[in-house]
């Protein structure tokens, strides 16, 4: 599905990503864990084209996308739910979803309606609030809307950047349940999480990113059992919970 080879990227003179290689197979949930500032968001931004790669390759469904513009990459079937719930605050919930389906705008009205119904099914609270302005939703509802909007594009690969940050435990649980449901329905997910334990529990495989380099990769259960990972990323989790 997605294959990244020796990817480098940064901001101006600052090199953030250093020779990153990773891949995501169809139907998999892959998680990327790492401390604050490790470059996780930068990696997703580079895949979506918001940040330019300075070297290396990004191959999506067999095609190189590293030189495409961000708005074109979405059309290739890769959607990002960005960090920090970037909803269209001045527009209604339904309008947000309709805009999410923009890459599918040649589809009929009927498919659009079905797509929206599917999202309302995943997140019933959005149905209740469909006419409300997105900016007036609660943080959790906004996160669900951001996920729903990305799913409206019917992406082959959906990337989630810290979907559970700042949410109550019950809402976090719900979000992870939905990520699992996405996999059951055959979606491919690349998940970034601070909550490494929860992420590794739903994921098939994982990568550990440290100061812009991948220092560890493996099956999710192996990583969960790994001593270094436990000390660096899971220990803190245990204390916090």
């Amino acid at each position: 599905m997605l294959r990244i080879k020796n990817l480098e990227a940064g901001y101006g003179k600052l090199r953030v990503l250093k020779r990153i290689s990773l891949h995501v197979n169809p139907g998999e949930i892959v998680t990327l864990i790492g401390a604050n500032g490790a470059g996780k968001t930068t990696l997703l931004s580079t895949i979506t084209g918001l940040v330019r790669a300075t070297a290396g390759e990004i191959v999506l469904k067999g095609q190189n996308i590293e030189t495409l513009k961000a708005e074109k990459i979405v059309f290739r079937g890769c959607s990002l739910v960005p960090e920090g719930r970037q909803v269209f605050a001045t527009m209604s919930v339904r309008e947000n979803l309709v805009l999410g389906s923009y890459v599918q705008h040649r589809q009929g009205k009927e498919q659009l309606r079905e797509g929206i119904e599917y999202i309302y099914d995943l997140f019933p609270v959005l149905r209740e609030r469909k006419a409300q302005l997105a900016g007036t939703l609660s943080g959790g509802e906004q996160q669900m809307l951001a996920m729903g909007r990305a799913l409206m594009a019917k992406p082959a690969l959906i990337m989630l950047d810290e979907p559970s940050t700042g949410l109550a435990p019950l809402v976090v649980k719900n979000i992870f349940r939905i990520i699992e449901r996405l996999r059951e329905e055959g979606n491919t997910v690349l998940l970034i999480e601070q909550n490494a334990k929860a992420a590794l529990k739903v994921a098939d495989r994982g990568y550990v990113l440290e100061t812009g380099k991948i220092i560890l990769e493996g099956q999710a259960d192996e990583l969960l059992a790994n001593r270094d990972v436990q000390r660096a990323y899971l220990g803190r989790d245990v204390k916090e919970n």
Binding site: F75, Q86, F88, T90, L99, V103
Partner: peptide, 24 residues
């Protein structure tokens, strides 16, 4: 109109609009 909504989306959140496939 879709064009109008796209412009509104750009006004509301440029990055999110780009991520929806809109050329800002």
């Amino acid at each position: 109109t879709l064009q109008g909504k796209k412009m509104q989306a750009c006004a509301a959140n440029r990055m999110a609009a780009t991520l929806c496939g809109i050329s800002t």
